[in-house]
């Protein structure tokens, strides 16, 4: 009677749409909190990145001699090239930010608890890939800023314990920032990382579907995922689109001067904003700390902390309230470090 009594459209009847969304109709989620839409927003930003990235790929030349000029051509000559590059650059920042916001939201809601460990881990992988995409993308224009960021960013990798030297060489594609660095960054940015991100996103969503109702009682007012949540998500998406096109239309992402490896790395060289905290740890720690290499010790501690974050669902099975407070303190520390790095 339920199915027969429903008003189904002509198209829904024939496309199997009704069967597809039936499980989503049965699933309910909490109706409160904007942060619930951050996951979907991250997905939309990724799709915007793919679409605008493909358009940029039509004109970009991954070669140290031609890269800067080809981006200059995109900005100066190709119709709407500047707009599309702005969209790509701004969405990338928003993508990293919303990914971070989504992670924080999951921690604060303690949604990492069993049986969602795999969902958490796949999310951590997605975060790593996302940051990798942003970092490799920043290298591609081969402007002086991009070149310096590539150097500073890969230099920081040296301080990671155990893997440091390997990571340093891996990011540079050799011992120095060269044409190999650009070539590798390009390959990873347009092929390896987007493919990996798509794969892990699929895993992430499948793990989302595996959610079992009985283990996660919905607190407070709840709404069905379809159509209510999806419609609200779509409304949030329109907001994101407005934000992206507004930023892209009114705020140019300037290209700067071409890369000149002969120029010394300026003392105020900084990595991209999401690595500023890392930079600050390395820059501010004394060379020698209690008899060990200062930066290495602090970065090692930070990496240990990172490992704790990755292993969170296994360390905190019950979902202690204190975890949420610790997460807020950690975010505060990261923000303070980043702000300090800028001044």
């Amino acid at each position: 009677m339920e199915a027969g009594g429903r008003r189904t459209g002509w198209l829904a009847d024939r496309s199997g749409w009704s069967d597809l969304v039936r499980p989503l109709e049965a699933r309910r989620v909490s109706a409160t909190g904007f942060d619930r839409y951050l996951g979907g927003i991250t997905l939309l930003l990724f799709l915007i990145e793919v679409a605008s990235g493909i358009l940029l790929l039509l004109y970009y030349k991954p070669d140290t001699v031609q890269a800067y000029a080809s981006v200059g051509r995109i900005v100066g000559e190709i119709p709407y090239g500047n707009l599309i590059r702005n969209v790509h650059a701004w969405s990338s920042d928003l993508f990293v930010a919303s990914l971070g916001g989504h992670l924080l939201s999951v921690v604060l809601r303690r949604a990492y608890r069993a049986p969602y460990e795999l969902r958490w881990l796949s999310g951590i992988v997605l975060l790593a890939i996302g940051i990798g995409l942003a970092f490799t993308g920043a290298v591609l224009p081969w402007s002086q800023k991009a070149y310096v960021q590539a150097r500073v960013g890969s230099e920081l990798a040296r301080y990671v314990p155990v893997l440091g030297d390997w990571l340093h060489r891996f990011l540079r594609g050799g011992d120095e920032v060269t044409s190999a660095t650009l070539q590798h960054a390009f390959g990873f940015h347009v092929a390896v990382l987007p493919a990996a991100l798509s794969l892990f996103f699929a895993v992430h969503v499948v793990l989302l579907m595996r959610k079992r109702e009985e283990t996660a009682p919905v607190e407070g007012a709840s709404i069905p995922v379809y159509p209510d949540f999806i419609i609200r998500q779509a409304a949030a998406w329109t907001g994101v689109v407005v934000a992206v096109i507004t930023l892209a239309t009114f705020s140019d992402r300037l290209l700067g001067s071409p890369a000149d490896p002969r120029m010394a790395t300026p003392s105020d060289a900084r990595p991209p904003w999401y690595f500023l905290w890392f930079h600050q740890i390395v820059a501010s720690s004394s060379r020698d700390l209690l008899g060990v290499n200062g930066p290495k010790f602090l970065v090692g501690t930070a990496c240990l902390l990172g490992a704790l974050v990755v292993g969170l669902p296994f360390l905190d099975r019950r979902g202690w309230k204190v975890t949420a407070y610790l997460a807020l303190v950690l975010v505060f520390v990261l923000v303070v470090l980043s702000v300090n790095a800028l001044s």
Binding site: D228, I231, R232, A235, T249
Partner: peptide, 27 residues
């Protein structure tokens, strides 16, 4: 470009209103 931006803005607003209305109606 600016005209396109404002058109897109209007379209987004229209879409947002429609979606909000729909969500409100469903609730």
């Amino acid at each position: 470009e600016r005209r396109g931006y404002y058109a897109a803005l209007a379209l987004a607003f229209l879409l947002f209103s429609t979606l909000s209305l729909k969500a409100w109606q469903l609730e």
